[in-house]
Design a protein around this nucleic acid. Structure first.
Lengths: 209, 209, 209, 209
DNA sequence: TATGAATGAGGGTTCATTCAT
DNA sequence: TATGAATGAACCCTCATTCAT
């Protein structure tokens, strides 16, 4: 109340612990599911007694909320900060960005889809809002491209969901070091996406061939 | 003690109970997730005490396994029994079938994707094998069509996954009575799928427009 | 649901367990206070695992509520069933009854006063209502006797509380086998109560004026 | 390290904190009971972190001991310092003093009776000794008055307990601003006490003897 | 004197499951 | 086939307390 009675060193240790809690919880939630993970397991991973977790997160639910909300906000910031050649088609930017980001953060992505129902209503609403904001990016690209005659999309919202479902499914089967490189995956999916929304005749898809 | 002590009446009652257990478990697993559902809740839904469940399923895990395996085998049989106009393109048949079936059985589909990790290894393997068999149907269609020059698919396995992810995502947002009819959904997705795998020039997609 | 599938023997065992839970809880609550007693301790006393307690009482609070409510109702029934010589003054009946009953049930009486604040509001209200009903018995006796000129009580409600506080205090210090017999206690207190509410004839209260 | 490192300012702040700890603990113990109050709650009330409490009291038990012992010693000093008209009957002095003091310090009185069992043996003995010293005051008054023929008390120790129980019960139901003023309570109780121990002239107690 | 982090123990409660009846 | 009682393990969380800073 009076100010900085606590030395920076102490506070730093606490933040390090919180970081490790998040990391352990993320791994465990992704592997076994929120409901199947116990606070004891997380504490063991962190190297701390269960009670100590409550110095950093008020409840188990708050750990989940933290992971999911910060994943969504990281995703948004990453899109904002992504750098692509300026001449690159926005759709290509989005597809490549989405695949890369989702292959880099498989655990976050996974729990972000799997644990939605384990969020309490308020937290669920917050995460859903972020998800819609993200989808709106793609919808905007499709809208604009369609208006310009570059794409032919009957229903941009449906197309958005279709494309995102398609792309987001990749980490469920893609394994690094497998037959296909990440680059090849990007190219394959980009081709399919482009064709799926291409104008039906006299295509501007010449860049593919 | 007398041999056939069980009267047909009793057996019938037992099968009816088993059916209700499956039904209740399906609803609950879909709504809350396997780990978050207790045998007591299922028993309450059925109108029976928890102990009685064990007359029908040896463990909770067996209920899950039963639901998932029978979903996969129902899916395969349904495909086998599906009737489409013989002149209909096999891809269209598959897409329409998949969407219809998955919109009819949202709970089964949902747990089939969500609860995979809660299956014990053997059960997981069995379900995965079925899933691969199902995916093979689409891969076969793509292979054939590509060989015939009707489609241009660089990597049929990847395309299979992409298409199935896209289609299977529908029930996560589609709501009956919403803006779009099931028929419209089918048509929209069919168009996207067709275009995504169409040969790049001189398209045979004229039947859509 | 269909009837008596369970044999009387099983049910009897359960009721015996419930009885022992009540008994153990009563002893422990009286000795250490509700908050300081753990369900594990009660279970140990009963010879059962903690979880088994929940087959008989939904929560710890329900054990307390049960003890307190049944104490109050037992008290009321006991008063209804008490037999005294018909010519005995009702006040004497009440005083003797109260002292006897409270010396016989010291634990119940004790928690009944000590644990009131640990009752959740609804349960508290129910117990308080019973307590008031009991006090009303004495108030009625005082009212009638005062109307008949046998007693001189300025404020019967205050007198009720004063007398009951006085009598209820006995078990806090009285020990069986001590200097005074229960009979002597009864007589001593009866004398004091009688005098305290006796009509003032030519009292030696002159020292007040 | 320099010897008198503690500035007077610091010490004053500490004593102020200790006072607030006592105050908060008193309120909480009275409201919920010692066992149900956590050090965290007390710390919150004081506006300090739990650990800081241990700069002022070595354990939670010591807070309780402090409260109870200082209550008893305050009570004794207050009796010593009480001023009544010299001609007032000592019994009246005691009754009025007791009622007044106990209505002024309801929380202290309450925990003093309720939390006895939560005192560790040594602390319990110390508090009990003080309580007996206090009761002895009344017993002395009764003894003297009986010897002088002013009172007729068969058993002064029993009468002491009866009177004190009666008086101490008042704060459990008396509410300031209610139907009766404190003055009226004093008068009512004083009358009852006086009559209860008055010499028996021609009493209707014939049924006892 | 106060803090924030941690401990170690234990709180009430729920769980899947077993089993005699 | 269904019941009610019980088990044994585990659940999330809170506790009084310690201690380096």
């Amino acid at each position: 109340m009076v100010g900085t009675a606590t030395k920076p060193q102490t506070r730093a240790k606490g933040q390090e612990t919180a970081r490790r809690v998040r990391k352990a919880a993320l791994k465990r939630f992704a592997a076994s599911g929120y409901a199947a993970v116990s606070m004891r397991e997380i504490a063991d991973d962190v190297g701390v007694r269960p009670g100590a977790l409550y110095n950093h997160f008020p409840t188990k639910q708050d750990i989940l909320k933290d992971l999911m909300l910060s994943h969504m906000s990281d995703l948004m910031s990453a899109w904002g900060a992504a750098h692509f050649p300026p001449e690159m088609d926005p759709l290509e930017q989005f597809v490549r960005f989405h695949i890369r980001y989702h292959l880099e953060r498989t655990d976050e992505v996974f729990i972000s889809y799997m644990e939605l129902r384990n969020l309490e209503p308020d937290n669920f609403a917050a995460v859903e809002a972020e998800r819609r904001r993200y989808e709106t990016i793609l919808t905007g690209i499709l809208d604009k491209g369609t208006a310009a005659g570059r794409y032919a999309v009957e229903n941009p919202k449906v197309a958005t969901r279709a494309i995102i479902a398609m792309l987001t499914g990749i980490p469920t089967w893609y394994r690094e070091g497998g037959r296909l490189s990440e680059q090849e995956i990007e190219d394959l999916y980009l081709t399919m996406v482009r064709k799926a929304i291409a104008p039906t005749q006299a295509h501007s898809q010449t860049e593919i061939g």
